[in-house]
């Protein structure tokens, strides 16, 4: 089947998509957007998160056909040109990236959190990130980064 949807503001199509493919597969393997990572394929780890119509979801659990006509924003779509998004900047500054595999999903989820909640408490940050697993277990630096990004966002 052919699937057409908007990715990071641009309409994209993929042909000969098999029904069993996920949105994640279409993004990575057909549209050349490898930012969203393929790890558990069960919705357990959060590495594949993207915005679908403005709501963060696990792209591995979205069937390709379900993306038809929708708006997708991936981690590649958060920066403005060379200027990183505040969350990306904070992750780099705080050393919140170890192997980096979980990072894109965490960035998307943290981006959504600080857009919705102006000054998230530590409990709110932990709950929001509960579905994003870091196997390097570098959670303390990740919390630092989200706090920093939230502070900077609130100050602007």
């Amino acid at each position: 089947m052919r699937v057409t949807f908007t990715v990071n503001g641009r309409e994209e199509s993929a042909d000969n998509v098999w029904e069993g493919e996920s949105l994640l597969y279409v993004l990575r393997e057909r549209l050349g957007l490898p930012g969203s990572k393929n790890a558990c394929e069960q919705g357990e780890c959060g590495s594949c998160m993207v915005y679908l119509d403005g709501v963060p979801v696990c792209a591995c659990l979205v069937a390709a056909g379900q993306a038809e006509g929708r708006q997708v924003r991936t981690v590649e779509g958060l920066a403005e040109g060379d200027r990183l998004d505040a969350v990306q900047e904070a992750f780099a500054e705080c050393g919140a990236v170890q192997c980096g595999f979980c990072t894109p999903g965490l960035i998307v989820q943290a981006h959504d959190l600080i857009a919705r909640v102006e000054r998230p408490s530590d409990a709110e940050i932990r709950e929001a990130l509960a579905g994003n697993l870091c196997r390097c277990t570098g959670y303390e630096k990740i919390l630092d980064a989200v706090r920093l990004a939230a502070r900077r966002k609130a100050a602007t």
Binding site: G43, G46, M49, V55, P56, V57, C58, L61, V62, Q109, E127, A128, A130, G131, N132
Partner: peptide, 8 residues
């Protein structure tokens, strides 16, 4: 579940 799963 988790926030992203509840969204879906």
């Amino acid at each position: 579940a988790s926030a992203q799963l509840r969204n879906m």
